[in-house]
Amino acid sequence: MGLFKRIDVQAKIDNETGFGTTTSYSGNRLIHKDGSANVKKKGIGFLEHISWYHWMLTISSLKFWCIVLTFYLLVNLVFAVLYYSIGVENLNGIVATTELDKFGQAFFFSVQTFTTVGYGHINPTGFVTSFVSSIEALVGLLTFAIATGLFFGRFSKPRAYVRFSKKALIAPYKDGRALMIRVAPYKNTNLIDAVTRLTLGISTEEDGKATNKFYSLDLELERINALTLSWTIVHPITEDSPLYHFTEDDFKSIRGEFVAFFKTFDDMYSASVIKRTSYTFDEIVYGAKFLPMFSADTNKKTMLLHLDKLSDYEKVSL
C-alpha cells in the first residue's frame, strides 16, 4: 500500500476516464489493442443495444462480404421456394424435365427479378406469381439502396491510418528514464495537428475493495504540427510521475494498463480522425530503446520510412 500512497501524493489523478474507480472487474484489459472498449452491455434487448448500421460499417471486410453474399443467396433461395411451391408452370419460358432443373430455373428467375436484370426469356403468369415477383423486385430495390449506402459509408469513412508499436518501452531518457511508445502513418495521407494523451490505470485493493486508479501522464510533447515520419511519444519518469517508484518487478506483479489516445486532422478527408490503443503491464519492455525506422534512399534525395521496423527495439541498461 505504501507504493500507491506515494503515487497518490505526487501524481495527478484522472477521474474522467469513463471507467469509474470502484470495480470488481478482474479481466485482462480495459481497452483492446484495436481501441475498442472491453465492455459488454447487458440488461436490455439485443436490438436495443446494437446499431446494425454502425456494426456493418465497422466489421472487417471479410465479415462484411460474407454477410452480403449470404443474405443475397438466402433471399433468392426463399423466393425460389415460393415460385416452386406456386408451380413453375406459372413461369413462362421454363424448359425443364427434372424437379432439380425446375427449381434451378426458378432460382435464377428469382436472381433476375431481385437484381431487376430481367432477361425476358422467363416471365410470370397468373396473379399470385406476378404478385410475388413484384414484391421481390421491391425488396431488391430497397436492398440495393441500403447496400449502396453501406458501400459508400465503408469506403468514405474517415480513418486514422496510423499504427502503434506492439510494445511500450521503459527507456533511458536524459539523466533518467521514460515510458516510450512509437506511432507512424502507413497510408498516403497527410496528417497534421496531431495530439496525443496517455493515461495510466492501476487496479489495487483498498479496505478490501477492488479499486481502479487512473493517472494522466505528462508528455514531453502532446502536440506536433505534422505526422510525416514516426513519432515517439515520451512520458518522462520524474518525481511527479506515478511510475517514479516502479521497478521491473512491479511491472510483472501489478495489474495495470496504459491507454493511448491519438487525434489528428486528415486533410484528404478534411476531418479529424482518432485512434486508440492500450498496453498492459505485460506488454512493457523494461530497459530497451527503439531502433531507427527511417533512412535516406540510395540517391539521398528521399526519406524512407520502414514501417516493418515500427516495433523494433534493442535491450539497454538503465
Results as ranks from 00 to 15, higher is better:
residue 274 I to C: 03
residue 264 T to V: 12
residue 222 E to C: 01
residue 271 A to W: 02
residue 251 F to I: 01
residue 226 A to P: 00
residue 217 L to S: 09
residue 222 E to A: 08
residue 224 I to K: 14
residue 235 H to R: 05
residue 239 E to F: 10
residue 217 L to Y: 08
residue 221 L to V: 08
residue 233 I to R: 12
residue 221 L to I: 07
residue 239 E to N: 14
residue 245 H to G: 01
residue 249 D to F: 01
residue 261 F to S: 14
residue 235 H to C: 11
residue 256 G to W: 00
residue 251 F to D: 02
residue 223 R to H: 12
residue 226 A to K: 09
residue 229 L to F: 08
residue 241 S to T: 07
residue 230 S to I: 04
residue 251 F to R: 02
residue 246 F to R: 03
residue 252 K to I: 00
residue 269 Y to C: 02
residue 263 K to C: 14
residue 273 V to R: 03
residue 264 T to S: 12
residue 237 I to F: 08
residue 268 M to Y: 06
residue 261 F to E: 14
residue 272 S to I: 15
residue 231 W to D: 04
residue 273 V to H: 04
residue 230 S to R: 00
residue 274 I to T: 13
residue 222 E to D: 14
residue 240 D to Q: 15
residue 239 E to P: 03
residue 259 V to W: 05
residue 258 F to A: 01
residue 250 D to G: 02
residue 235 H to V: 06
residue 221 L to E: 15
residue 268 M to Q: 10
residue 226 A to H: 04
residue 236 P to E: 09
residue 239 E to T: 09
residue 260 A to S: 11
residue 251 F to G: 02
residue 243 L to R: 04
residue 260 A to M: 13
residue 222 E to M: 03
residue 259 V to R: 06
residue 259 V to Y: 04
residue 220 E to V: 12
residue 248 E to L: 02
residue 253 S to R: 11
residue 235 H to Q: 13
residue 242 P to F: 08
residue 220 E to K: 15
residue 236 P to T: 10
residue 223 R to Q: 12
residue 231 W to E: 05
residue 231 W to S: 04
residue 264 T to G: 07
residue 221 L to M: 13
residue 263 K to H: 14
residue 234 V to T: 15
residue 249 D to T: 04
residue 237 I to E: 09
residue 262 F to K: 05
residue 228 T to V: 10
residue 254 I to R: 10
residue 253 S to Q: 11
residue 229 L to C: 06
residue 256 G to P: 02
residue 271 A to Y: 05
residue 250 D to H: 08
residue 265 F to A: 09
residue 243 L to S: 06
residue 220 E to T: 15
residue 269 Y to F: 13
residue 265 F to E: 10
residue 226 A to N: 04
residue 263 K to T: 15
residue 256 G to F: 00
residue 254 I to L: 12
residue 268 M to G: 03
residue 265 F to I: 13
residue 231 W to L: 04
residue 232 T to I: 13
residue 240 D to T: 14
residue 267 D to G: 00
residue 237 I to P: 09
residue 262 F to C: 06
residue 251 F to T: 02
residue 266 D to L: 00
residue 221 L to S: 15
residue 266 D to N: 10
residue 253 S to E: 10
residue 267 D to F: 00
residue 255 R to H: 06
residue 237 I to S: 10
residue 238 T to H: 08
residue 252 K to P: 01
residue 253 S to M: 05
residue 258 F to L: 02
residue 229 L to E: 11
residue 261 F to D: 15
residue 245 H to T: 01
residue 260 A to T: 07
residue 237 I to C: 09
residue 274 I to V: 15
residue 253 S to L: 06
residue 268 M to P: 00
residue 231 W to G: 05
residue 230 S to A: 12
residue 274 I to G: 01
